[in-house]
């Protein structure tokens, strides 16, 4: 992964961007307030496959975007301007 297609600025080198972490919600199957707190604060889904995450265009338009990426190959699948 060398480039990212910013929805506003176009194709830019990856070092212009800052990774903002995976976008996740605590699964409904997690029960109990303490377990849900632990999950929300600490756990990562860390999938070996398609993930949805946030990126910030630090050296460009300085706005957030949503990226769908395949972590198995570290390749971008889709870039969205707004939250999914």
């Amino acid at each position: 992964m060398l480039w990212l297609d910013c929805p506003r600025c176009g194709r830019r080198p990856l070092d212009e961007f800052t990774f903002g972490g995976e976008r996740r919600a605590v699964p409904a199957s997690i029960e109990g307030a303490d377990e849900r707190d632990f999950d929300e604060v600490w756990v990562f889904e860390n999938p070996d496959g398609i993930t949805t995450e946030r990126w910030f265009h630090t050296a460009g338009c300085r706005r957030w975007m949503t990226v769908r990426r395949d972590t198995a190959r570290d390749e971008v699948v889709e870039v969205l301007e707004a939250l999914p």
């Binding site: 990774f19 995976e22 972590t71 190959r73």
Partner: peptide, 14 residues
């Protein structure tokens, strides 16, 4: 390490 998580073991030129 790379800022974004990945399971790829491909060396990156960057």
């Amino acid at each position: 390490f790379d800022s974004q998580p990945s399971y790829s073991r491909q060396s990156s030129f960057a």
